[in-house]
Design a protein around this nucleic acid. Structure first.
Length: 417
RNA sequence: GUGGGUGUAGUUCAAUGGCAGAGCACCGGAUUGUGGUUCCGGGCGUUGUGGGUUCGAGUCCCAUCAUCCACCCCA
């Protein structure tokens, strides 16, 4: 019986770890520069947290959640997204009662039972930002600016920002009614999915891909025309901030976030080169969620991005990323005495933070030289009988073949620089 | 969940239904203190898995698993 990795999951192997650390470090730095601090929540929560917050009718809850019951019959779910857990932690730790403003970021694995394809996995890694505690439109722009800064720092160029406003609950209700009015005459001609959408989520009618459904889209009302005064103004101000910050965007009224808790600003970052799964990050405002989860009525905005798609985008743009580290030195010892004496030298090098490679199994000097070369180390250290007698080692530069004789103390000093 | 493509060595790929191979990588060596180039030697495989057809299956058929593409959805 051979064991195989579960479908839709993957191992991050040593050869790739440095890439992951790199992008994660950049994200942490960028988030810090905006004053955000990391929060880490469990990877499973009460299933109800997601059912309530994401919406019973959402795909995530309906068919993509990994649910399980524990030994006491409680129902939990592996988290399919990061916002609800962060808000749960915010409320549970009474952060809503002490000042109320929190600038948070997180990163870690999420889980969705979905059919894998390029850029889509069952366990995937997200990073995210949540600003909780203000409805000021500046923060909508700030949160977007964090993601744009992150991508810019990494060097990604071919990315588009699309924004929209879905309004508050009141606006959404008016808009849904208007949409139903528009589609009512064609109800019989719509696909089965759309007839369901007509009842449950009329705005989903807009992005149906079935050709016959598409024909009824022209002339459909736009959400933007159904924003009340406050929401309209809010959206306008967000746009003004983005303009001032020189962040380019297009308004796309079709952007509807998949989770029920979004209000007002919704946005998405798209890298066209990625194919079907081209959304690299998405988010929006969720002013109703905190109260819904049991906290004080508190406005908030955030987004989440996917590391896998980010890495794919970096690859597409041929942006170099760190690989597996190369040794600073490869140490060669010839003869039994040298093989013993070399251990002390290795230890002092490593204590000085120098990456020193050594393999006692390589036999001949020649074989060790070959290994040194293959290791791609910058230097080789050679310790043989002659050097032992003089209490010296040879430090050989493997790229220009120059070499010098040094005492072990001088060696550490030279290499630590 | 739906439709389609693909699965052969570590990897990239060959092999008309007739003895499973090549490049790269890897390992060992070319008279015991100097690597890269070169040369010699080594195939490391349950052809994803399980059935079936056939004298004979990597090749044909069925199932299954994985992966890729699209739908759906989304990061």
């Amino acid at each position: 019986m051979n064991y195989k990795i579960p479908r839709g999951t993957y191992d991050i192997l040593p050869a790739d770890s440095a890439k992951w650390h790199f992008v994660q470090d950049v994200f942490r730095k960028v988030a810090s520069s905006f004053g955000y601090n990391e929060i880490t929540t469990p990877i499973f929560e009460m299933a109800e947290l997601f059912e309530r917050s994401s919406g019973e009718s959402s795909d995530v809850v309906q068919k993509e959640m990994y649910r399980f019951t524990d030994q006491k019959g409680r129902t939990f779910a592996l988290r399919p997204e990061g916002t609800a857990p962060v808000v749960r932690a915010y409320v549970e730790n009474h952060m809503d009662k002490s000042g109320g403003r929190s600038k948070l970021y997180y990163m870690g694995p999420m889980f969705r039972y979905d059919r894998p394809q390029a850029g889509r996995f069952r366990q995937f890694y997200q990073y995210g930002i949540e600003f909780i505690g203000s409805n000021h439109p500046y923060y909508d722009a700030e949160v977007i600016a964090i993601e744009m800064t992150f991508l810019k720092t990494l060097g990604i160029k071919n990315v588009r920002l699309e924004i929209n406003s879905v309004g508050c609950a009141e606006c959404a209700k008016d808009y849904d009614k208007a949409l139903q009015l528009h589609y009512q005459p064609h109800l019989e001609e719509l696909c089965a999915d759309c007839r369901k959408r007509f009842e449950t989520k009329p705005r989903r009618l807009l992005d149906c891909k079935v050709p016959s459904c598409k024909t009824f889209r022209p002339g459909a009302p736009s959400q933007l025309d159904y924003l009340d005064e406050a929401c309209r103004l809010h959206f306008q101000q967000v746009r003004n901030y983005l303009d001032t910050m020189n962040i380019a965007y297009t308004v796309n009224p079709a952007i509807v976030r998949g989770l029920d808790y979004y209000t007002n600003t919704a946005f998405e970052l798209i890298v066209d080169a990625l194919g079907a799964q081209n959304s690299i990050a998405g988010g929006g405002r969720y002013n109703a969620l905190i109260a819904q989860i049991g906290g004080k009525d508190t406005p908030a905005i955030g987004f989440a991005g996917g590391f896998e798609r980010l890495l794919l985008a970096l690859e597409k743009e041929q942006i170099p990323l760190p690989g597996i580290p190369k040794p600073d030195v490869y140490t060669i010892a010839i003869g039994e005495e040298a093989q013993t004496a070399v251990l002390g030298i290795l230890q002092s090098l490593r204590e000085a933070g120098i990456y020193a490679e050594y393999n006692p199994e390589k036999g001949s000097f020649k074989a060790q030289m070959k290994a040194a070369d293959a290791s791609l180390a910058a230097y080789a250290i050679i310790l043989g009988e002659d050097e032992l007698k003089q209490n010296k080692v040879i430090l050989k530069n493997l790229s220009d073949s120059s070499q010098e004789s040094l005492s072990p103390q001088e060696l550490v000093g030279k290499l630590s620089r």
